[in-house]
């Protein structure tokens, strides 16, 4: 934000609106991870009669979401 000259859009977008928009979009990935894999864990718990798979699902979901965010925005 504090760079005096505008960077060209071909730059990786750091400090630009693209980077900012991606940061706001992260919420959606985290929620998707929790809901999807937490939900799968919950269903497996119901099916198998266990109680701990929902926790595993939530942790896996958050982990995958962080991994995806890092892979998408952190490595390129």
């Amino acid at each position: 934000m504090s760079t005096p000259a505008r960077k060209p859009p071909s730059d990786d977008g750091r400090d630009g609106p693209l980077e900012e928009a991606r940061a706001w979009g992260i919420t959606s990935y985290l929620l998707a991870g929790l809901l999807t894999f937490g939900g799968i864990g919950l269903l497996l718990d119901r099916w198998l009669g266990t109680t701990w798979l929902v926790l595993v699902g939530l942790l896996v979901g958050v982990g995958l979401a962080f991994y995806l965010i890092w892979f998408r925005y952190g490595t390129r």
Binding site: T27, S28, A32, L35, T36, L64, F71
Partner: peptide
């Protein structure tokens, strides 16, 4: 996104699908 290890692709696909079709409109 391209370049992911192949074993993780199905999980990421599920995550991306839920993100784009369900949680994006909810969070927005």
């Amino acid at each position: 996104p391209p370049g992911l290890p192949s074993w993780i692709v199905p999980f990421i696909f599920l995550l991306e699908f839920v993100d784009k079709f369900i949680t994006r409109p909810i969070t927005l």
